[in-house]
Amino acid sequence: MLSYRPRPLPTRRAFLLAGAGAVVALGGATPARAAGDGACTAERPFGRYGSPAARLTEQTLYVHPDGQGDHTSVQAAVTAANGGGYTLVIAPGTYRETVTVSVARSGMTWIGASEDPHDVVVVYDNASGTPKPGGGTYGTTGSATTTVQADGFTARWITFANDWLRADHPEITGTQAVAIKAMGDRSAFHHCRFLGHQDTLYADSIARDVFARQYFRNCYVEGDVDFVFGRATAVFERCRFHTLDRTDLAGAPYGFVFAPSTAGANPRGYLVTRSQVTSEAPDEYYKLARPWVPSSDTTSWPMLTVRDTHLGPGIDAVAPYTNMSSGFPWQNQRFREYLNTGPGAEITVPENRPQLTDQEAELATREVYLGDWTPWKAG
């Protein structure tokens, strides 16, 4: 990952609201329900999801920042869920904290009570180079606002954010700042937002020899450098990836959307389907992807397939891929496209845009990637 010089950025509140409205147009967020139709109100902060007095199930915990639930912080509720199968119903609010869902807390579900991801924001501001209280720095993994180690995690209508800003910390060169690191198998995110700059969404696995399936539907992800990265088998369906503008760089590229680090033995990496890539940066200032081969696992064989997706003018159509590390050229990785549209998808130099054949495309589907797990049927 690269480190860049600082740049002026909007206020943190403006940052958290970035992309507001755009996701709704894509089906990426459901507006809050009208009063009388299960909406959150002052009297009913948990909307149609009950209340501590009338729980959905015995394993439902309610989170409210002003004390109207069981807990006032998300981490407190996660800690109280001392086993598998718990549901957290989270009232509207900004929860400034770091959260870890341990391996033992499998099958956990988080629900944003208003059914609008703009209303429930879990955010913190650690970066890789942020000093730790006990010495050293957090590193990329340690910078995550939310870390999910457990299998079977599901989130609906939640914003996961890291609002660490380069401009606030010119002394820090480790500028990776993760909003969420998802590591478990069968992790599903519906109508969620992921906000950050470098390394926003870390779609990974618990260990390099463990394959983890993840599913993202109707989600919004924004950032600048490698802002979707990791070694998970991840399907992104009907999602929007938005590249941010920058003023600290003299020219292109400003960054890279995807940086997969798929294990060499894993036949499936990232699949992006029926989605779109938009940008607020100048045209052609972003690369679609570059391969991440970590020094800890040089056997990685990064895999990314982007199909049936609209690529806006922010993507460099002539050379959409580039290298991250010497000795691992992108041409040797598993990068493919199929039936993409938009100015960023124009094929002007065919050797720079490897395409699936029709026969290969039959195996590049959510069903093939996710196998016997069908999270799209749950919303």
Rank of each mutant, 00 (worst) to 15 (best):
S326P: 01
V178N: 04
S102N: 11
F216T: 03
G136V: 10
D372H: 12
A76P: 01
S187V: 09
V148E: 04
P170Y: 12
V89H: 04
E43G: 10
T159Q: 05
V24W: 12
G129A: 06
L363D: 14
R208W: 00
L356F: 08
A144F: 01
Q75N: 10
L311F: 07
A167D: 14
Y220A: 10
V235M: 05
Y270W: 09
N323W: 11
A76K: 04
E115A: 07
G69E: 04
G230Y: 01
T30A: 13
A182M: 11
S128P: 00
V306L: 05
G142N: 08
P354T: 08
G107T: 09
G129Y: 00
F229Y: 14
G139H: 06
S106I: 00
L26F: 09
Q149I: 08
T98N: 13
L2N: 13
E337I: 09
A14T: 08
R336H: 09
R12D: 13
A207E: 14
T305A: 12
Q359R: 12
P133G: 03
A161T: 07
A345P: 04
T41F: 07
S51Q: 08
T146F: 01
T137G: 02
R105S: 10
A263I: 02
G27S: 05
V99K: 03
P260H: 08
R238F: 03
R240N: 03
P282R: 06
E367S: 15
S279N: 09
Y202F: 15
R366K: 12
S325Q: 12
D297W: 12
A188M: 03
T60E: 02
S205Q: 04
E43I: 06
S300H: 01
A361Q: 08
R240P: 00
S300M: 02
H169V: 11
A42M: 07
W164H: 03
S295I: 10
F160C: 02
T374F: 13
E171A: 14
A76Y: 02
I180V: 15
D308H: 12
G269D: 03
T146E: 05
Y49D: 03
G107D: 09
R44T: 14
S3G: 15
P45V: 06
T57A: 15
F241T: 00
N266T: 10
M108V: 11
Q149L: 13
P45W: 02
L271V: 13
M108H: 07
G136C: 08
P8F: 00
Y86A: 03
